[in-house]
């Protein structure tokens, strides 16, 4: 009789825990402003509160190091036209330059003086003249930056670096890796529009990430089910200004100095490297659909969701099973 009762007790405990009648899993969330955006980090598992605090500190640290102004490493280089950087910054700069090379300059960390002239850093927006832009373009070009043994130098005086197109993705990846090493198997990192997923949801199912509609911020073009990847979207629909009835957005085409006008409304990159996802979302937005598809086809080691001006949503075959499109959009699969 005692055996039967013990067996029932064990089954009972199992049932209670498995059906969720037991205590909920520990989680903690931090909300804060950093890197010129609003961030939210949610960590599930033991030690969540302490790890969430550490994650926030890590992002603040990276922000200080990478900020294009101020007394961080990149700010100092911009002010002095070169200088020495730490090993971490050197590695990130080398990766950024490699991504610039690989994207044919569609992603370019030296576009800084041009973006500054448009007022996207200060918020004092203006449309620079053609001659001003062509002069400023002379101060850009990733191939004019050299990084050797921690020493950064520019070929042309007046050049500068802005890691804004890769910094958030990098920060997300760093925090992801830090949490992973601490034994966390479920976390959701929302860094502005960048989403970095650690594992799946605490119940083991995949996370569901809405891809914001470029024309209506309250709707999604679709929902992506994913785990353990970074999902980064670039679009010209959130940061822009209007002058004389023309809309100027913040993604500047390094080839022209003007906001990229490639026929795309937004580009979402899905890949397991946050920094790369960040850089590629900008690069493919600048490239436009045709070039973006051939860039992807030549590598086939990441996925994308493109939203075109004519209302189509183009995805890579790798997302076919996991992407549910919203009503009103035409889905196409790139080949």
């Amino acid at each position: 009789m005692r055996k039967i009762r013990t067996a029932f007790l064990i089954v009972l405990i199992l049932v209670v825990t498995l059906t969720g009648c037991g205590a909920e899993q520990v989680s903690d969330t931090a909300d804060f402003f950093a890197m010129d955006t609003y961030m939210r980090i949610t960590v599930y598992g033991d030690g969540a509160d302490e790890l969430t605090r550490q994650a926030e500190e890590e992002i603040m640290r990276i922000e200080n190091v990478l900020s294009f102004s101020g007394d961080g490493e990149i700010g100092t280089i911009n002010e002095h036209g070169g200088g020495t950087v730490s090993e971490e910054t050197q590695e990130l700069l080398e990766r950024a330059l490699e991504l610039s090379r690989d994207t044919g300059g569609a992603f370019d960390i030296t576009i800084y003086p041009v973006v500054e002239a448009w007022g996207f850093f200060s918020g004092e927006y203006r449309v620079p003249g053609d001659s001003e832009l062509s002069d400023l373009l002379g101060l850009t070009g990733w191939e004019k930056v050299s990084v050797v043994d921690g020493q950064v130098s520019f070929q042309v005086p007046g050049m500068g670096i802005d890691l804004g197109g890769i910094g958030k993705g990098y920060a997300g990846q760093r925090v992801h890796d830090m949490l992973w090493e601490a034994g966390i198997s479920s976390a959701l990192l929302e860094l502005g529009g960048n989403v970095c997923l650690l594992g799946g949801r605490p119940d083991g199912t995949a996370w569901r990430v809405g891809i914001m509609s470029p024309t209506d911020g309250e709707e999604y073009v679709g929902i992506l089910e994913a785990r353990d990847v970074s999902i980064v979207t670039s679009g010209g629909y959130q940061r822009y200004f209007e002058e004389d009835g023309v809309r100027y957005h913040h993604i500047i085409d390094p080839a022209t100095g003007y906001p990229a006008d490639s026929g795309l409304l937004s580009v979402t990159i899905v890949c397991d490297d946050g920094a790369r996802a960040d850089a590629l979302s900008t690069a493919l937005f600048v490239m436009g659909e045709e070039e973006a598809v051939s860039y992807w086809a030549a590598r086939d080691d990441f996925d994308f969701i493109l939203v075109t001006q004519d209302g189509r949503v183009v995805i890579t075959p790798g997302l076919r099973e996991d992407f549910q499109i919203s009503e009103g959009y035409d889905l196409e699969v790139a080949a």
Partner: peptide, 16 residues
Amino acid sequence: DAGTDGQVDAVSGGAG
């Protein structure tokens, strides 16, 4: 509460 609408856990948008 942490979730948005129960439909999604997070939203990826074009601020970056």
